[in-house]
């Protein structure tokens, strides 16, 4: 086996394929994330705008940004994490780029994203 085949074999065999709804930068999503506290497990929701999807394969991550008490909070989730319970896509946004970091500088009305018309 060559290098690519070996890595693919390990990833295919030992990493569970996660299937989530399709979303991209500009969409508003809710990530239901499992949190372990000691022996107990609970689910925390993180709702915000997707800034980017980065990487590929099992190394893919996505960044979600929300405004919490006037402070911007960003969280990076591994897309293949077993801790993600589910992902809801709340809104489909229309943006022109794949990574919308310009959103970080915008506040209030300017930070709105046009919703996709279905």
């Amino acid at each position: 086996m060559n290098r690519a085949e070996t890595i693919k074999y390990v990833e295919d065999t030992y990493i569970e394929k996660r299937v989530f709804p399709v979303f991209k930068a500009g969409d508003t999503i809710t990530v239901h994330y499992k949190i372990k506290e000691g022996t107990k497990e609970r689910i925390q929701n993180f709702q915000g705008v997707v800034l980017q999807r980065s990487g590929k394969g099992i190394n893919q991550t996505f960044t979600v940004r929300k405004i919490s008490g006037n402070i911007g909070v960003e969280r990076i989730f591994p897309a293949s994490s077993p801790f993600i319970d589910k992902i809801d896509v709340n809104k489909k946004g229309v943006v022109r780029r794949a990574r919308i970091f310009y959103l970080r500088k915008l506040r209030g009305k300017k930070a709105r994203i046009r919703e996709e018309r279905v």
């Binding site: 086996m1 070996t6 890595i7 390990v10 990833e11 030992y14 990493i15 499992k34 372990k36 099992i58 190394n59 591994p78 293949s80 994490s81 077993p82 801790f83």
Partner: peptide, 19 residues
């Protein structure tokens, strides 16, 4: 290199060695 998740769901960076 790649990474796999352990039993606790932690992401562990790994090197694959054919031994």
């Amino acid at each position: 290199m790649t990474s796999i998740y352990d039993g606790n769901g932690k992401n562990i960076p790994c090197t694959i060695i054919e031994a």
